[in-house]
Design a protein around this nucleic acid. Structure first.
Lengths: 143, 143
DNA sequence: CTCAAAGTTTAGCCTTTGCTAAACCTGAAC
DNA sequence: GTTCAGGTTTAGCAAAGGCTAAACTTTGAG
């Protein structure tokens, strides 16, 4: 009832809204990053490989790729390999950097390799630039 | 094609599956934690307050509460205040602890109060027990 | 050159989490 | 005791992200 209560509510809803928004871009980023990895590793990215790596059915990948094409991140001819647009590559690069920082940070914190790999995947998308910077600083201080 | 490739794929899909699973429980936890806070702060939790704090429409809360009732976390009579079951309280307590650790950890890392509040909301649900322990240790070392 | 296996797509289904608009209770003020 | 404002619920819609089964391409082996 006090003005403070509504202020608190506003602040809190803001955090939840951010988290919901993050979740929207999150999956797209994961797909794009994975596609970039496949291209670099194997020379090309096929839907099947994406499905296996994401742990998802083939049809799910097809649907997702359509959304990524709409967003201008990916291009693809039917039955052909998946390619990234300029924006796609930029997003992949950005994701890789963030991912690496978070994972290295967790390792520096003393987390096991296995857990660092898994947790960083989840955390990566919810870390603001400020926090990312603090993590990078911590890692470089440790070295 | 090497055995290593399929191993890599399995490891990676495992991380993505974990993240997807996290997202499922995540919202439930947020609602339950918020309801607990409201009860402690104002004496009772009403759907409207939940809606405002979560930043969603009233109808969305109603729907979510039904799911929480099904999961045995919440009880409610129509048009009455929301109450938590034993399981609900346990989940809230757990969430509060994790949340506090993550937020304090970010602060200890040098992140600003504002950003720590927002980021911790997103990160909280993707942190394994091992990482949580490492964070707690770091905080206590700093103090 | 054929044809079958492997990969890709389509069709159709489901659940979750949002929304708005309209109907419905409750309780406090009169 | 009415009434009406505010809170709650219902109804009906949409988009995202899953799935399976069935149809369709591509390609490499023979």
């Amino acid at each position: 009832m006090t003005p403070n209560a509504s202020k608190k509510a506003k602040l809190q809803s803001q955090a939840f809204k951010r988290t919901r928004a993050d979740h929207q871009s999150e999956l797209a980023e994961d797909y794009v990053e994975l596609i970039a990895d496949l291209i670099d590793d194997k020379g090309e990215a096929r839907g099947n490989d994406v499905a296996i790596r994401m742990g998802v059915a083939n049809a799910t990948v097809v649907k997702m790729l359509k959304r990524l094409v709409e967003r201008g991140l990916v291009t693809q001819e039917p039955y052909r390999e998946i390619m990234l647009t300029g924006d796609g590559w930029a997003m992949a690069e950005n994701g890789r950097k963030r991912h690496a920082i978070v994972e290295n940070f967790l390792l520096a914190l003393g987390v096991s390799r296995e857990i660092a790999r898994i947790d960083s995947e989840g955390i990566e998308h919810h870390v603001s630039n400020e926090t990312l910077k603090a993590m990078a600083k911590f890692v470089s201080r440790q070295t």
